[in-house]
């Protein structure tokens, strides 16, 4: 469903992505691990088109999308959430979801009709709000909801475009342990045919959700395999999991 072939990116002398090749099957849930500065978010930015790789290619559902803009890739089914909330602050939760849904349905560019009142848009808003537990907050503006609920909305807005592949950059970033547990259930309850690529530092969540795990270090894939194999990998313990194992 999503594939990268020999992706490479440098900023001056700093090599941030080194020959990264990944292949995600339909419905696969892959978690990307790696220490700070490993190039995880930079890789995401190249996948969605916010950064252009120096070499290599990105393929979505068999099509080479490397030359496509961010918006074109999104319309083809690649959606992402951000590590820092990038919501529409003055709008309500319902309007945030509705705007994303109406872009997907094509109503967001039309004149003379209110996209938010369209039945197909309302249906997506309802469905996504239930999936990410936002029903009680639909009429609250972003500034009125807690940080944790905003993180849910961040994922919800990405989901409302009905993506083929959902990229999530640290969905639990900054939330407490209680809310983090809620995110486990939230991610596990998403449709099984949705392909997900998740950057996550929360090890419990990573091993709970992941079908496969990829570990990046200095922009390079140093591990690619099943969660059980990841737990037993000495290389992984050395570069990343030591602190987790000892915790």
């Amino acid at each position: 469903m999503l594939e990268t072939r020999n992706l490479d990116k440098s900023f001056g002398a700093v090599h941030v992505t080194r020959d990264v090749s990944l292949k995600l099957e339909r419905g696969e849930r892959r978690v990307i691990l790696g220490p700070n500065g490993a190039g995880k978010t930079t890789l995401f930015n190249q996948l969605v088109g916010e950064l252009t790789p120096d070499s290599g290619s990105v393929h979505l559902a068999g099509e080479d999308v490397t030359a496509l803009s961010v918006a074109r890739r999104a319309r083809q089914g690649l959606s992402r959430s951000y590590q820092k909330n990038t919501l529409f602050d003055g709008l309500t939760v319902e309007e945030n979801l509705g705007l994303a849904a109406s872009i997907h349905t094509g109503h967001a560019s039309r004149l003379w009709s209110d996209c938010l009142s369209k039945p197909e848009v309302r249906e997506i808003v309802q469905e996504v709000a239930e999936q990410v537990n936002l029903m009680p907050y639909l009429h609250a503006t972003v500034s009125e909801i807690s940080y944790g609920v905003r993180r849910q909305l961040e994922v919800g807005v990405a989901l409302a475009t009905r993506p083929l592949v959902l990229l999530m950059d640290e969905p639990t970033s900054g939330v407490g342990p209680e809310m983090s547990k809620g995110f486990h259930d939230l991610l596990n309850n998403l449709p099984r045919d949705l392909t997900m690529l998740i950057i996550e530092h929360d090890m419990d969540l990573a091993f709970d959700v992941a079908d496969t795990i990829t570990v990046l270090n200095y922009g390079e894939v140093v591990f690619d395999g099943l969660p059980e194999e990841a737990r037993g990998s000495s290389l992984l313990k050395e570069i990343y999991l030591g602190s987790w194992e000892n915790a």
Binding site: V48, E50, S69, V70, A71, R72, A74, R75, S79, R80, Y82, T86, L87, F88, D89, G90, L91, E95, L99, A100, S102, I103, H104, H107, A108, S109, R110, L111, W112, S113, D114, C115, L116, V157, A158, T161
Partner: peptide
């Protein structure tokens, strides 16, 4: 309209609007 709501979305967060397609 949908166009107007998109415009407001662009003013609030153009980067996210692009990422949504």
């Amino acid at each position: 309209s949908g166009l107007g709501r998109s415009l407001i979305g662009v003013m609030h967060n153009e980067k996210r609007m692009k990422a949504l397609g």
